[in-house]
Each structure stands twice: as structure tokens, then as C-alpha cells.
Design a binder for these strands. Structure first.
Lengths: 221, 221
DNA sequence: TGTGACAATATTGTTCACAATCAGTTCCAT
DNA sequence: ATGGAACTGATTGTGAACAATATTGTCACA
């Protein structure tokens, strides 16, 4: 159980919302888990009112589900919706990849290539954690380089919703071997400043992610 | 000033949020207009607490802006961001158009063609309002036929943010003449069950919308 | 006339107590 | 034993009171 924050600190609704989001992301709060207002208030050292508005905000974001008079729980995203989310992400990240290819400077190109080499090394060394980190870094970097703040915010929210399925993916054996070439293809296309090719490569990669999620869910329940 | 809702009715936070959203959409609340909690509470017959959480939710959605201790106001979306929104919509609606083309039944095809004829007739008759209605119906129908609930929700939210710019667009003389063929091209591609062509046509159309918004904003302020 | 300090007002932020509701349990009549 | 009505404990929903903060208005003084 987490220790309460030091007394007297202003724990506003936004802070509570961040903590809960983070806890869901870290797997400390699992889907369908009940979120009792009083418990959260004590846990984070906030008033119940703040917890309440935090839960309202998280409901709008789609990570929490509320039922009248029955409280809030971590929303359980069904497989079907997770696949939809991947499709939407595919469209948006393809846009970002294309824009990144258009705006790419020499320095940024080297950064992307460095990330590619790290991922390659991680696969060779069999270091899953390093590979996962490289994956996150690559996607985040491309989104950042695209300069599309709106797309970035949208993607962030969608990812937060489907976080459960992301985890399963990296646990899948042989997954990194399959996705590495896809990632390298994206990097290559972006560094070649070819927007169309970059978008294609990203779409192809996320289509493969979708298939992997589906396969993983169908077998492991 | 609007009359208060009948006393005793349960005016929950969600209802207040809907009303405010609607008021912004209808242009009754303009960008940068201050949203004083007590006023809204009286106007909608809700308690201040409900108004407060409604404002929190709308802030998350991006239609309202809040500053600590200084209250809420209707967020003024800058041109730059509006153009970003159009780009993101372009990516998402292209996805929807493609999916709609894949899933299209005979009945739905006839519906689309009917909408197309209506829009054509509206342009010939010079009926701006009918054309705008057809435009809304076409986009909404394609999104619905795509079966992509996630994309639909995302597009809805984005449109709510940029509503101010939509208005200007229809006021622009000759705008319908330009966009009609784009709309017809979308309908044709979808009815031909060609996903790629449908996506292309939609992208092209929204690119044109982007240009028109930019032109309109640069000249009129 | 302009400027700064100060007071008055308006508005938002926070907490708390109480009402409403629900799930589970007990108990009674059949 | 079984179905259902009433009870109980836990939890959420609601509104109002109070505190904190920003904005506006006032006035003395240079």
C-alpha cells in the first residue's frame, strides 16, 4: 500500500487524477477494480471532493467507468475496442510519421538512427526491457518531431485506455524479432525524408501490432 | 436570458455539461467569454457543485479553459491549432471512409447517393443552409457506416473544439461550389467499394477545407 | 495628474455534514 | 426449504457554509 503524501501538501484534483492514471498504467490498479472514493482520498491524502472530480475527469478520458450510485471502477476495455484503438492510432501515427519525415533535421535523423541501433542491440542481447524502452522512445520521438500537438494528445489518451493490451504484447515470445524490422523500416523511411513511405511503414507496423494483440487475446483469454 | 429549468428536475453535472457544450456550438457562448459558476448555476437550475464538475469535464474535453482562482472561459482555439485539428480529422475520416467502403450494403449506398443528389440540388438552388445540412449528414453517415466507435468519438470531440471555424467556412462565398465535387467524389469512391480511393478523396476534401479555413482566417481576422 | 497602498467586492476553492441509494443479510410466512 | 420483505452497513450524491484569492474601486500623496 502506498504511503500517504505528507500532510499539508496541496493535493488537488489534477494531482489525484495523475496518480490514478499512473497507477492504472503501472498495473497497480487492474480493470474492473473498484475505486472507492474514501480509500483513494486517504491513500493520496486528498479530500473526497478532489477525488470525486478526479474520477469525473478520468471518466471523460475513458479510463474509468462510473455507475450511478455504485461508484467508479477501472474500465475494462474489450478486445474489439482495443483493436479499434489500434486502428485509430495507426491513422494518427502514420500522419505523425509523415510530418516527421517532412520536418526532419540532421540532428533528429541521427537520434532516430541511434534508437534503431539500440533496439537492434536489445534484440540481439535478448533484453526485452531495453527493447520495450526503445519502442516507447521511438514512437514518442516521432510524435514529438511531427510537431502535431493535437495528434499527440489524442494518441496519448488512446494509449492510456488500451494499456492492458500493451503489456501482454511484450510478454509474447518472439514478438521483438517480428517487430524489429518493422521499426527499422519506419526509421529508414523517415530518415529518407519520404512522408508517404514513412506513413506506410507505420501503418504496416501497427497493423502487425493489431494482429499480435488479437492472437494474444484469443489464446490467453 | 434563458429561463431556468423547472424546479425539482434533476439537473446533474452531465446535463449542465451538455447544455454548455450545446450553447458553445450554437454560438450563444463565444470564445473567451467568462463562465461564472453562480450564473450558470442559476441559468440551468443546477447547484454550483454540478456546474463546477461540468466545467472540469469540459476542460478535459478542451472546449473550456480554466485558470486557477480566475475561473473558466470558453477556450479560444488559435488558427494554428484549428489547422492541426483538420489534419487529424483528415486522417480519421479517411479511415472511416475506407471502412465504410468495405462494409457498404446496397441500402446504405442508396442513402449516400441520395445525400449526394440533395447536395447537388442545394447548390443549384443556392440554398446554403440545405447544403450545410447535407454536408453534416454526409460526414456523419460515413462515420456511422464505418462502425468505428472510437474514431467517431474522437472526431466528435475535435469538431466541438474547432466549431468557430466551421461557421466562417459556410459564410464564405462560392465555398459550396468548390466543395461539392469533392463530396461527390467521396460518395462515388465509397459506393464503388474502393477503400483506398475513398480515403484519398476524403483526405483531399479535408485538405481543401484546411486551405479554406486558413484563407478565411487570414483575410477576415 | 499620476501612482501606489489599501479597502471592498466578486468569484473561486475546499471541506463537511447529511440525504439518498444500493448490496447483502436476516427473518418470517408459506 | 424457499421466496420475499424489511433491515443494516457501506458508499455515493448533494448542497451549503466557510476560506482563499483575484479584481475593482477609492483615496491620499507626490
Amino acid at each position: 500500500m502506498a504511503t500517504a503524501t505528507r500532510a499539508g501538501a496541496a493535493v488537488t484534483a489534477t494531482v489525484v487524477a495523475d496518480r490514478i492514471r499512473q497507477a492504472i498504467f503501472a498495473g497497480e490498479l487492474v480493470p474492473n477494480q473498484r475505486l472507492v472514493e474514501a480509500d483513494l482520498a486517504e491513500m493520496y491524502g486528498a479530500s473526497r471532493g478532489h477525488v470525486r472530480t478526479a474520477l469525473s475527469e478520468l471518466t471523460v478520458e475513458g479510463v474509468v467507468e462510473r455507475i450511478q450510485n455504485r461508484g467508479a471502477r477501472v474500465r475494462s476495455v474489450p478486445l474489439e475496442e482495443a483493436l479499434e484503438i489500434v486502428e485509430v492510432r495507426s491513422a494518427l501515427e502514420a500522419l505523425c510519421a509523415a510530418r516527421a519525415a517532412q520536418r526532419l533535421g540532421e540532428e533528429e535523423a541521427q537520434l532516430l538512427q541511434r534508437i534503431g541501433r539500440d533496439m537492434e542491440a536489445a534484440v540481439e542481447a535478448g533484453d526485452q526491457s531495453a527493447y520495450a524502452q526503445g519502442n516507447t522512445e521511438l514512437h514518442a520521438t516521432l510524435i514529438r518531431l511531427s510537431g502535431q500537438a493535437t495528434a499527440a494528445a489524442t494518441i496519448d489518451r488512446l494509449r492510456a485506455q488500451a494499456v492492458r493490451f500493451q503489456y501482454r504484447l511484450f510478454a509474447q515470445p518472439g514478438r521483438s524479432q517480428q517487430s524489429l524490422p518493422e521499426h527499422l523500416a519506419i526509421i529508414e523511411a523517415v530518415c529518407a525524408r519520404e512522408p508517404e513511405a514513412a506513413a506506410s511503414a507505420m501503418r504496416e507496423h501497427l497493423m502487425s501490432v493489431g494482429s499480435a494483440i488479437e492472437a494474444s487475446a484469443r489464446t490467453s483469454g
